[in-house]
Simulated assay, not measured.
Amino acid sequence: MSLHPSHVWALALAAVWASTAAAQTDPLPSWNEGPTKQAIVAFVTDVTREGSPDFIPPAERIATFDNDGTLWIEQPIYVQFAFALARLKELAPLHPEWKDRQPFKAALEGNLAALAAAGEQGAADIVAATHTGMTPEAFRQNVRDWLAMARHPRFDRPYEELLYQPMLEVLAYMRANGFKTFIVSGGGIEFMRTFAEKYYGIPPEQIVGSSIVTKFEMRDGRSILFRQPTVNFIDDGAGKPVAIEQHIGRRPVAAFGNSDGDLQMLQWTTQAGGRRLGVIVHHTDEAREYAYDRKSKVGHLSQALEASTIDRWTVIDIKRDWKIVFPFERTGETSR
């Protein structure tokens, strides 16, 4: 049977409209079709449908997300540590003693081997020197100023362009379905509060992170808060469930992470009654981003990957599951 040309055009337009409608109704358009995407969509669908045996009331729909390596890039070094190193160089003229004192000497000279040898204590010393001795407002302004000019060493783009587009879609999708989204990260709570609302749509009161001691003082008759060079809390590993209890007061029903530092948060979330979702972002795409897990000191992933099989967590394989990684790829741009 032959079709009149007008009928052919009508069928073609119908196909286009159907395709457009499907794209508009797809909550995760930057994801490839497959079991990973299906697991996330099925969870949200099942727990939000009234009458479903897995229904979760809106007040209990708490989803927690790690930040570094889960929502934005963390290689070759954590973004906050890149800020600390830049701040150290900015402050160096005021501290001539740093030229002969480790780990500052190594950081100023760009001696990565010596800096790595200084370990966690060395990193803590650099953070203490660059993140304290000021009000929270002054610190947040320092972060905003740096983010406005800093660029990633490989992609030569601002860090706000190196968020993971598929994860931004997950955040929006869950919020559209009555979830309250929180960041629970080893990064500094004040550091993340400077950009999380702008980048992720997550307000400051829904940020849980590591913190330093902050004290109330009266200076010249004015009340201020002042950041002290003392660690208050490290929100990593076993600290994450503790921080969730202290800051949120509800056990999450969904948790997203990418490293062994997220292991206990995922366990705490999923080892409870009822339907739960645990998700690991596995970095497997060295061409579009990075490939790393067990051998990496940044975003080390070993125990949590093994636990994913036992606890039936969903593992995102970036190379397989994401159509694009960063928002700028939607317009066909390439790395600059």
Rank of each mutant, 00 (worst) to 15 (best):
T135F: 10
D100R: 10
A138M: 09
T135D: 03
L108Y: 02
R144E: 05
A106D: 08
P96T: 12
G119H: 09
H152L: 01
G119K: 08
R140I: 04
R140P: 00
A114W: 09
A107V: 11
D100G: 14
E60P: 05
W146N: 07
A123K: 12
P57W: 01
H95C: 04
G110Y: 14
E50R: 13
I56N: 00
D46H: 14
Q75C: 04
V127Q: 03
D46K: 06
T130F: 06
H95I: 03
A86S: 15
N111T: 06
A113T: 13
E120H: 13
A86N: 15
A63T: 08
D125T: 01
Q141F: 12
I126H: 02
A82D: 15
L112W: 15
L115E: 01
W72N: 04
A124Y: 05
A138Q: 15
P53S: 09
R49Q: 14
R154L: 06
A128H: 08
A82C: 10
A123L: 11
L85S: 05
R61G: 02
W72E: 00
K105I: 01
A118Q: 03
R101Y: 11
A107S: 10
D156C: 10
I77N: 12
A114M: 01
H131T: 12
L91N: 05
A92W: 05
A116W: 04
V79E: 12
V143D: 01
L71A: 05
D156E: 15
R87D: 01
D54G: 05
T70V: 07
P103G: 03
A148L: 04
H95G: 03
Q102C: 05
Q102A: 15
G133T: 08
H131I: 04
Q102I: 07
W146V: 06
R151G: 05
E120R: 15
P53Q: 04
G110F: 11
G133H: 13
M134R: 12
D54T: 14
F155K: 09
A123G: 08
R144V: 07
Q141N: 14
F155A: 13
E60N: 14
I77Y: 15
F155M: 11
E109G: 11
A116K: 12
P96F: 06
R154E: 07
R87G: 01
D68M: 09
R140N: 11
F81H: 13
A117G: 13
A92L: 05
A148F: 12
P58M: 00
I126Q: 00
I77F: 12
K105P: 01
R144K: 13
A82Y: 06
R101F: 09
L115I: 10
A84E: 10
F55G: 05
P53V: 00
V127A: 07
D66P: 09
V127S: 00
N142R: 12
G69P: 02
P136F: 07
Q102R: 12
N142S: 13
P96W: 03
A118H: 02
F55T: 06
Y78W: 10
A86V: 01
F43T: 13
T70L: 06
A114Y: 00
D54Y: 11
F81T: 07
T70H: 06
P76K: 09
Y78S: 10
P76Q: 07
V143S: 04
F104L: 02
R157L: 14
A59V: 10
F81P: 09
Q75P: 01
W98I: 02
A117P: 03
